[in-house]
Computed example of a mutant assay.
Amino acid sequence: MAGFRVPGPLAGELRVVPHPAVMLVLEFGAGEAAMEDAAGRLHRGSLVAGPGFGSGGGVRARGEQAECVQVRLSPVVAGTLLGVGPAELTGGAVSLDDLWGREAARTRERLHELPSWQDRFALMDALLARRCAARSPVDPAVAWAWKRIVASGGLVRIDHLATELGWSRKRLWSRFHAAVGLPPKSAAKLVRFDRAVHRMLGGGGAAQVAADSGYFDQSHLHRDVMTFTGSTPSAVVDEPFLTVDDRAWPTGVPR
């Protein structure tokens, strides 16, 4: 998780770059934050967004004097923790008030009262642990498949996963999609994209990154980046949503 403070108005709108996690945003304090999706729908305040949220480059964040805690959750545990599965989010976002009711408001109030980010992170750790303990466990087979996809950088063959599980491709597709919110192949594509853009952000050239990340060639990488962000590889590495990652998410981010 990470804490963000916007002391004044955002200098322009912030493009949301998709990543392979469920995003939980808890806004607190006197400011205001919102996200506008590609259809022009405005999501104000605290929200939950599915993996790949922002695909196509049509989601923008804006705010003024806003403070929030953002948590990135593995899709395979998100349903257990949040009370809504990623499949129900379908790449979009829902209000946390609609999911948690009064608990969302109480959590925001407590976050506002606490004096430091570390105290706020500890509060969120305890809250999520409590919610996890009170709900059904994660499907171990789907969790295993997700970990294999992430560990491979999205390069593992989906038919190999099905074979190792002793499942048909159809069964893997159905169980995985229900738990993660994406079919296995789409999830692998998102993980591969995320790994590639962060390598470019670290200074890697597009041609070398394409070769190392399992793309056919540089134009294949270019098409993938355009599909996910609506921007070119050279432009996307300057997106503020990405450039804060190494400071905001030094460990634990799926890449």
Rank of each mutant, 00 (worst) to 15 (best):
Y215R: 00
S213I: 07
P184H: 06
V209H: 01
V180T: 07
F176L: 11
K170F: 11
A211R: 14
Y215M: 02
G203T: 12
A188S: 13
F193Q: 02
A179W: 07
K185A: 14
G205K: 09
L165R: 02
V191W: 01
A188C: 10
A196D: 05
P184Q: 08
W173A: 12
P183R: 11
G204D: 09
F193C: 05
R169P: 06
Q208V: 15
A210L: 00
V197S: 03
K189A: 15
A207V: 15
G203E: 12
A187R: 00
M200R: 07
L201H: 03
L172A: 07
G166H: 08
V209W: 00
F193I: 04
A179N: 12
L190M: 02
G205F: 04
A196Q: 04
R169G: 14
H198C: 05
Y215I: 05
A207F: 08
A196C: 04
R192C: 05
W167C: 06
Y215K: 00
G166V: 13
K189H: 13
F193S: 02
L165Y: 03
V191S: 01
L190F: 01
W167E: 08
G181Y: 05
D212C: 03
H198G: 02
W167L: 13
A210I: 00
R169A: 14
A207W: 09
A178H: 10
G214L: 09
R199H: 08
G203N: 12
H198W: 06
W167Y: 09
A188N: 06
K185E: 15
Q208H: 10
D194N: 14
R192Y: 03
A196G: 01
S174K: 13
S168V: 07
G181W: 02
V180W: 00
G203Y: 05
A210N: 03
P183A: 14
S174E: 15
L165A: 12
A188L: 07
A211E: 15
S213N: 07
P183T: 13
R175V: 14
V191K: 01
R171N: 11
V197G: 04
A206D: 10
A196E: 06
R175C: 12
S186L: 13
W167D: 06
V197W: 07
P183F: 00
A196L: 02
G205Q: 09
V180K: 03
R175T: 12
L165N: 04
W167M: 09
A187N: 02
D194L: 08
G181C: 07
G214P: 08
L201I: 09
V191L: 07
G205D: 14
A196V: 05
H198I: 04
Y215V: 03
G181F: 04
A206Y: 03
A178D: 13
H177Y: 08
P183D: 14
A206V: 15
G214A: 10
V180M: 07
G214N: 09
G166P: 11
S186W: 04
L182E: 03
R195K: 08
F176Q: 07
A196T: 10
R171L: 15
R175W: 03
S213D: 05
R199G: 04
L165F: 05
L201E: 04
F176I: 11
A207N: 10
G203R: 09
R175G: 05
W167R: 01
G181Q: 06
D194G: 11
G205T: 08
K185P: 01
P183G: 14
V209F: 01
R199E: 15
F193N: 03
R192H: 01
R175A: 15
